[in-house]
Structure formats: C-alpha cells, structure tokens
C-alpha cells in the first residue's frame, strides 16, 4: 500500500477509523480546526484535542459550477453540523449535483477518499460527506 497523508492536519487517518480532530477550549469547549493563542469565545488559553463525530446533518449547501482553474465542476459544497458538536465544511459526495437531490437537514456520514497523488506516489486523503442512508464500501481510504 502506498504512503498516505491527510489533506489537512485535522483529519486523522488512524487506520480504519478516520475522523476529524479539533482543538477544544478547556474552559468553554469551543472547537477550532487551527491553533489558537486564546479561545475566541472566552479567552482561555488551554486547549485539548477532541475527536469529532463522523455523522451529522447538512446545514447549508451550494452547487458550484464556476470555479478557479483546475477545480473540477460541478461539485457540491456543504456546511455540516456534526452530531455531538462541531461544524465543518467539505464536499458532499455520492450525490447528484442537482438541487432536487439534496435536502437541507439531511443526515450525512463522513467518508474518505484519495484526492491526489504526488510525484513520489504519496496519496493525499480527503474527507467528504455522503448521504447517511447509503452504503459506501468503496469509500474506505
């Protein structure tokens, strides 16, 4: 198996249990995907790593048809409310890029896939969200 790296550092590949991890404020629990000097909500300066759920619901989406050069269109971008806390943005996968096929509030489940390969054969693993009622055995990283 070729070497794999996550597309961003808040995606933890962790074998067959890929998941997102955030910096959680030790005082108020506010979640951040990047490093913070202090919590933007309460000002506390200590954080702990927290694993986030893979399941959630679609809070908002858009279907992008016109994009920067090199970005494949159309694709569906969504903001997802994660079960148990946290909000994340990523693509919806395994859905038709058709507003009739996507429902606001629909349950989704995180999946991972190979988004690119570099010249040394290393694969970048990305995450997206698929409708929760479908099964996606082919989407394991």
């Amino acid at each position: 198996m070729s070497k794999q790296v996550p597309i961003v550092d808040y995606l933890v590949l962790d074998g067959d249990q890929p998941h997102l991890e955030a910096n959680a404020c030790a005082e108020c629990g506010a979640l951040y995907f990047d490093r913070r000097n202090a919590c933007a909500r309460c000002g506390a300066q200590s954080f702990e790593r927290r694993a986030l759920a893979g399941s959630g619901t679609v809070r908002a989406f858009t279907i992008v048809h016109r994009a920067a050069p090199g970005v494949k269109t159309p694709y569906v971008s969504a903001v997802v409310d994660l079960d148990g806390g946290g909000v994340v943005k990523s693509n919806l996968v395994d859905v038709e890029p058709d507003p009739e096929q996507i429902a606001l509030g629909m349950p989704v489940q995180m999946v991972t896939y190979v988004a690119g390969t570099d010249d040394e054969g290393t694969e970048a693993i990305a995450f997206g969200y698929a409708p929760a009622d479908a099964s996606h055995p082919e989407n394991g990283a």
């Binding site: 790296v5 597309i7 961003v8 995907f33 969504a78 990523s90 693509n91």
Partner: peptide, 12 residues
C-alpha cells in the same frame, strides 16, 4: 491547517 493541496473544491 497543514494542507498538502488546495482544499478549494475538495473540502467545500
């Protein structure tokens, strides 16, 4: 975010 490639169009 420790990105290894542009997230635009991949992570929304």
């Amino acid at each position: 975010y420790g990105a290894v490639m542009s997230p635009e169009g991949v992570l929304g």
